[in-house]
């Protein structure tokens, strides 16, 4: 089944997912950087993490690398970050 996520008033299709549960900084970022290279430009990646820092780090990482930060959802200490590959 195709996964989608509601961010703001938009419904966005998720193309790939990366499991970073239990990993501490900087591993979620290191893995995200590698995973983003595997998906196509324009595709959306969902990163699942338990690292609180990712909420602040991922928007900055996206800005620095020229990718689009779509948003973050959180529930019970779990964070799901959505971003779109642009470069």
């Amino acid at each position: 089944m195709e996964e989608t996520v509601e961010i703001g008033d938009k419904t966005i299709k998720v193309d790939a997912e990366l499991d970073c549960f239990g990993l501490l900084c900087p591993m979620p970022i290191v893995k995200t950087a590698a995973k983003v290279k595997e998906i196509d430009v324009g595709q959306v990646l969902k990163v699942a993490s338990t690292d609180l820092g990712i909420k602040e780090d991922m928007p900055v990482w996206c800005a620095e690398t020229g990718n689009e930060f779509l948003g973050v959802k959180e529930a019970d200490g779990e964070y799901f970050v959505y971003l779109r590959r642009l470069v």
Partner: peptide
């Protein structure tokens, strides 16, 4: 190493 790998991942 944390800083180095983080920096490299940021391009």
């Amino acid at each position: 190493f944390n800083i180095a790998t983080g920096a490299a991942s940021m391009g």
